[in-house]
Nucleic acid binder design. Sequence first.
DNA 1: ACAAATTTAGACAGGCTTGTCCAATTCGTC
DNA 2: GACGAATTGGACAAGCCTGTCTAAATTTGT
Lengths: 208, 208
Amino acid sequence: MSVVDAAASVFCREGYAGANIDLIAAEAGVSRQTVYNHHGDKEKLFVAVVRDLTERCNAGIFATIASFPDQPTDLEADLVAFAVRMNRNCICNRDGRFLRKLIQAEGERYPELFAEWREQGPGRTWSALAARFARLAFAGHLSIGDPDVAARQFLALVNAELQITFMLGGMPTEEEVLRSATNGVRTFLSAFARKKSPAGKQAALVHA
Amino acid sequence: MSVVDAAASVFCREGYAGANIDLIAAEAGVSRQTVYNHHGDKEKLFVAVVRDLTERCNAGIFATIASFPDQPTDLEADLVAFAVRMNRNCICNRDGRFLRKLIQAEGERYPELFAEWREQGPGRTWSALAARFARLAFAGHLSIGDPDVAARQFLALVNAELQITFMLGGMPTEEEVLRSATNGVRTFLSAFARKKSPAGKQAALVHA
DNA sequence: ACAAATTTAGACAGGCTTGTCCAATTCGTC
DNA sequence: GACGAATTGGACAAGCCTGTCTAAATTTGT
């Protein structure tokens, strides 16, 4: 296990102040001196950890968004599968949980570092996801007012049942993820499904 | 400011390991010795802080749930107002933010303490809220499958736009709270509004 | 006003952590 | 095998924090 990975684990478990370099070195399987040789001091190591996590998480999120169902065959099933991928690969995995916890615990101490994360992460992520939903709406699969709102609400809904588990840093089971995604997508589609009224076409136009 | 309040503030800002008793004493305006006289040691003080926050937050949440619109005159407006109250009095206020942060940061270190919170807080909260939604559905104002799911999704939706602010420990503005609640309730009602046979009416509701 | 209880400031020991230094050892590469 | 680079273990000083102790000052109750 690399030094940065071990440091991520210890920083998350113990908090910045509670993390000690000896423990990180032991967990990484190297001597303390090597940690100092590679990363200078504790603060630099912490910054390296956050940058590393941010980068990997963003990569994962964009890779997953690339698998968004632009031409759905079964809209509900496709969106559920997408939500499950999102959760599994970006939100529930090691990097996602660690990054979230570090942001929550130490975000206020390193404003510029986390501002950077915020711009490159959620900022661009939500835009990208909103664009995909807008496309679905344009293609007539959904009836959406504001795509940005819809994207945020989609994420909120498919994670609605996992809040408590996240709060305590736990890892939800595959079954919990699936159930939360299924319930969330179902409600999302109830709200945003294309209107099937005689005036459906009109309604769709109004929202465009 | 009482010792426990000052301790809550410092524990949240610095983390358990990073919090030092001198700082807590100074912030509370008492001597360090007094802190030790009252609370024994750091760990006991921490437990007292969490219990205090848990108790006050639960009281606030149940008081707010008691104001749920059981006989709504304007369902959307009433639910938005309820959601705003919930956010302002329970989730965004000092106690709510502090408790959330302590749970996220130290939850794994004190499993029994936070299990206690979980049972008395979210467990009963969600049930109580679900019961209110079930009642609205029974009275014909909503069309709900599983009230527990609906309650969790309601909370997720009305907070959808505040996630980032929460993540960094910030306090959303009144306007942000209102907008998030409005958008969330609108989507919630789109999904759970009572089904009317003429589909035209539904379409009209969506953008009202 | 007086006595008891509480609070205070400061000193203090003990322990832990950071970050440095260094000699010995191991590793990679030719 | 040999040589330079990296790694190791351990010692080390300096600083910080916890928790205790004490004697003085302050508050409280009567």
